[in-house]
Design a binder for these strands. Sequence first.
DNA 1: CTGTTAGCGCATTCAT
DNA 2: ATGAATGCGCTAACAG
Lengths: 339, 339
Amino acid sequence: MGTTIIDVAKKAGVSKSTVSKVLNNTPYVSEKAKTSVLKAMIELDYIPNSIARNLVKNRNTPIIGLIVSDIVNPFFPEIARGVEDTARIKNYSMVLCNTDYDLRKEENYINFLLQIRASGIIFASTRIHDSIIYGLKKIKYPFILLSRIHSIIETDFVDVDNELGANIAVKYLIDKGHKKIAHITGPLDTSPALQRLNGYKNTLKENGIEYDEDLVMTGDFRESGGYECAKKLLIINRKKRPTAIFAANDLSAMGAMEAIYSLGLKVPDNISIIGYDNIHISSHPSINLTTINQPKYEMAKIATEILIDKSENKIPPQKKSQIVLKPSLVERKTVQEIQ
Amino acid sequence: MGTTIIDVAKKAGVSKSTVSKVLNNTPYVSEKAKTSVLKAMIELDYIPNSIARNLVKNRNTPIIGLIVSDIVNPFFPEIARGVEDTARIKNYSMVLCNTDYDLRKEENYINFLLQIRASGIIFASTRIHDSIIYGLKKIKYPFILLSRIHSIIETDFVDVDNELGANIAVKYLIDKGHKKIAHITGPLDTSPALQRLNGYKNTLKENGIEYDEDLVMTGDFRESGGYECAKKLLIINRKKRPTAIFAANDLSAMGAMEAIYSLGLKVPDNISIIGYDNIHISSHPSINLTTINQPKYEMAKIATEILIDKSENKIPPQKKSQIVLKPSLVERKTVQEIQ
DNA sequence: CTGTTAGCGCATTCAT
DNA sequence: ATGAATGCGCTAACAG
């Protein structure tokens, strides 16, 4: 470490500009100079300092920040993989920032990314203070929301139609004969949770089923939340126990399954359950969770491409890309038809 | 973006040195100057360029690179979380680099991290070319191996005693009456896979069970590999079908379970299975996988702390930290006692 | 083709 | 207490 362009220049017996030129593949360098510089570089284990290069070129650091709320939720590693693959193709790297649902951590990360002049930020289904969004917009910093939208402020985003997803899920349950359908929500200050709840309500209505607020439990997109909600649903409301649960994501569906088992009940024999996300584990035959698929890799890919294009000014800043993909049903074994 | 210290200086009517001083909390700055600088900073949305700061301070970028082979394996998000939490406390960030088992990707990432002058690299159970390790050592670049060791080259590492883990697993099966115990390995060019295989062999030997190479299948630490291996184990060797399988990690154990189910068999009724890692999902009542726990978060924490101490020269470069933690048995429901 | 000069954004002496 | 000057590692004119 610490070998600079000057060390190389000395060793090769040329000026540092010449070294810089071979580094940048500038045409007009004599073969002789080139080879001697290359040789010196190898001998000195020279590693160009890209930080300094970007500084003088007045370019941002080729890093995309991906801010996620919970890296242990398998939804996010799949997103991360998509972002990372896409970024790499365009010669960017990804910094993964895990907030653990902590708003202060999130702010810290944003500051960090700003300070290292990262090329842009992807907010993957995190809540963000409006003030932060305004701040980012004000300084024209490239960012995009993934699996999240903002109802008031215009931003770029890539999302999946959450209402439609919830619609498909609940309609499926209804078609299977279910009428007492519970819903375990996500945190209600996030748009996907809210939209799925709306989809749930609307679909009930459209099918002539009365909305019963006792059948809706506020979860947190985590297993533990799903567990708690399902417990309440099954114990407290014993008289009007639901025959099916629509969980706002697979993780809470799995938590709910835990609760159901712990009460000696079975899925789907005693109670049907449908999730949302289609994380990989849901397809395992031990789980076999019927769920709504989100095209995770594709979402991540699209968001990354848009962000990078923005950062490279290939898309004018004022143009907003607002992509909404379609969810789809993945039929497995956790929903049973009832009479 | 683009606001510099000079813009702030102009606006505040001071020199850029003064601005720099308030930025760095240097004592001798008049209250008056300070407030006017602070005011200008806010008005201009000034964000200090930490890249430039690190450059002049001749410090590395406060980023730790974490190189993992497969971010979709839940083992790694848990590691990532540990690294990230620990790094953050010490004011570092983490760049997650997912190689998808691709050596070229790995090299690319290393180059990238070197070029941005990241403070160090954690290699989480990836294979690395020896030449790379030598290269890193030669330039005295801080790095540490996590869940992996190198048999020849002296490096820092944090590992869990893999032989002991395999020992515990296989002994447990033997104590439950199993004699025909198969093993699905990891990729055999990685140390954990090799050591677990050794542990498997040794434990059989110590207990007077003859080693049968037909009962050992080379997997890849992935679900698909576990699936394929189990299929072979169950179909091809129908006559000497094992009564138990020791899988080199939970993911392949889950793949094996899939294969078992697909043949109409049951776990643990027809065949017992024990995994390795204790990833979170294994505790789900639908899976309930008996396994060997690795203290993932702790490993990550320790490795990160050592790496940062190295990077900050709090540990002399020549001193090698070689930590070996203890695995432990997590008894669940996938192993059955037989007569 | 090559070297000199200037400057990216900032911190740090060293005078004043 | 403040500012001018110098330089971190590098690129980009420019002149030679």
